[in-house]
Design a protein around this nucleic acid. Structure first.
Lengths: 325, 325
DNA sequence: TTTTTTTGGTCAAACGTTTGATTTAATTCT
DNA sequence: AGAATTAAATCAAACGTTTGACCAAAAAAA
């Protein structure tokens, strides 16, 4: 490895001179500049970020903790983050928790030791009290919120639920809500939106119409199979994510119910599959990439300006209409 | 930030003593141990990895360069990598090139400066000569190969093409190969497998049956629409990835051709959608997660054992049969 | 008891930078 | 030409660790 010292020796100047020109903090005589540049090139020198980090307390690295990178929702978010921060010279450390709180804790500690400049945190949601877990560094929460203590970027889930339900209401007032686990915050908000749309339209909210199922393809599938087994008529379904919707559709197709002729469906998220399915799924699009982008901007801002007041940015979901409605 | 020095002062010992106990490199009197541990706890001390890295030349960080994290193929790979290396205390830096060679170059330089311990590289494929780009650190290539100069983990694409074609051959000898860009290595290997299966079965290889299309859903869709427009009869399709297959299916469904009754289809990759589609797609599964896992193991091995001979591991794809055959 | 060995601990240099303080050289002003 | 100013370059300490060399005291061997 070539160091500043090697360069300095070759150029017959001091280490600090080289450092100064590298950082453009002082001017030097044109000829010295030439010598130094020549030496740098000749030796193939590049600065050691570790040493710089030790001195400056800036690592140009941010950590991202998230539940599952192979879930396209999170993949899109991290892509948004990486895309924006890399423009400012930052790298991102990926921490995949697999929804395991212990692993989450472990990563938190690792990252603290690594002296990251900032952290984007998408928790498992199992840990309720996260205050004081981050030390004093900039943190932004994504798709989660804990009061106003931390900066966050989230999307308006109440609106999302409302939009979906309202669309369905055009065709039927009997709408089944295929809910994920009610304990998850985002889900319960979607339910509120669902309810709001209902009461606004003057239709009674009926708890029997909300069915709590696994947050998966199979969850949706089984839920519909269950309903069908009761010989209950289905007219419209709002699924709290797209995979559930797809599973539900599968169950219907298998049982010969026609979509969208007999049943209308709207999902949530707008994952890649949604548009590729046949029939293509109407859904509430989450601005995933944008969430990541805004999170990246927020964290960069906090790093540059040494904190400041926590900011809450909330994005708006949009209904994208396709073939299931 | 609390440092070793703070701990040392509080425990009334020297800095080195604390360091030694932290690393378990020397034994100390039980009472000193107690004092030190107490001080560590009291101060909430955790070691500064940057400083450690500077001294030891070990950052416990590996870089992963890949074309697109929002592509589930790569997402699964990086998940495999992260899962395995994190067990040995390594973090991964994510570098998303967006298939841009300039960005790829930039990341390479950044990572060199960061003093990563190793690099997993999934190039854009546009850069042909990658020798000498990595300096001397451990590198493993995934899903790509450049002679035997570097360690690599890849999957046997010839076998994959063969397996798919052989399955299709059971129903028809007229098999269309929806190829991605022929310039990509993995694709051309799949084509070789396709050809091998054909000749083995004594059916003539017909270049008209291989259709080069975009490596996307739309690519597959358009290709089939094109064929249908020529009133050409389709009996079996081997698509070089699942998205192409899905697009192709869409085109067929729209035109009333029955799958699998009239046309059999097999895709490639086994992405998440494949199983969720209706009809569920028969496909060649790439062991994505395992590829990542093996890559992680390889890089760890190289780090521990200071290099050694480059190893080539090649994994086997498997046919997973679903509803389109 | 004296010498040797072991145990428990400290010293100080080093890793590759940055940067305030300082020195030296070059330029401008009388 | 000499003094004053400015520009260019250097010194040396610091960042938080690790680790080979060293030392003192206690334990074991002579």
């Amino acid at each position: 490895m070539t160091t500043l010292k090697d360069v300095a020796e070759m150029a017959h100047v001091s280490v600090s001179t080289v450092s100064y020109v590298l950082n453009g903090k002082k001017t030097v005589r044109p000829e010295t500049l030439l010598k130094i540049n020549a030496a740098i090139k000749e030796l193939g020198y590049y600065p050691n970020q570790i040493a710089i980090g030790l001195k400056t307390k800036r690592t140009y690295t941010i950590g991202v903790i998230l539940p599952d990178i192979s879930n396209s929702f999170y993949a899109d978010i991290i892509k948004g983050i990486e895309d924006t921060v890399h423009l400012s010279g930052y790298s991102v450390i990926l921490c995949n928790t697999e929804n395991d709180e212990n692993r989450e804790m472990k990563y938190l500690n690792t990252l603290l030791g690594k002296d990251i400049d900032g952290l984007v945190f998408i928790g498992t949601g199992k840990t309720k009290d996260i205050s004081g877990k981050f030390g004093s560094r900039p943190v932004v929460l994504v798709d989660r919120k804990f009061g106003n203590e931390f900066s966050s970027v989230s999307v308006n889930n109440i609106l999302g639920g409302y939009l979906a339900t309202k669309r369905l209401l055009r065709d039927s007032s009997d709408i089944i809500f295929l809910s994920g686990p009610a304990s998850v915050n985002t889900i319960s908000e979607r339910k509120i939106g669902y309810r709001n749309a209902l009461v606004e339209a003057g239709v009674a909210f009926n708890e029997d119409n909300v069915i709590e199922c696994d947050f998966t393809y199979d969850g949706g599938y089984n839920a519909i199979i269950g309903i069908l087994a009761e010989h209950r008529r289905i007219r419209a379904v709002f699924a709290s994510n797209d995979e559930i919707a797809l599973g539900a559709m599968r169950a219907m197709i298998e049982n010969g119910v026609k979509i969208p002729d007999e049943v209308k469906i709207v999902g949530y998220d707008d994952i890649r599959l949604a548009a590729m399915y046949t029939p293509a799924l109407t859904t509430i699009r989450q601005p995933k990439y944008k969430m990541g982008k805004r999170a990246g901007e927020l964290i960069l801002d906090m790093i540059m300006n040494k904190g400041g007041e926590p900011k809450q940015v909330v994005l708006e979901p949009v209904l994208v209409e396709r073939e299931t409605t």
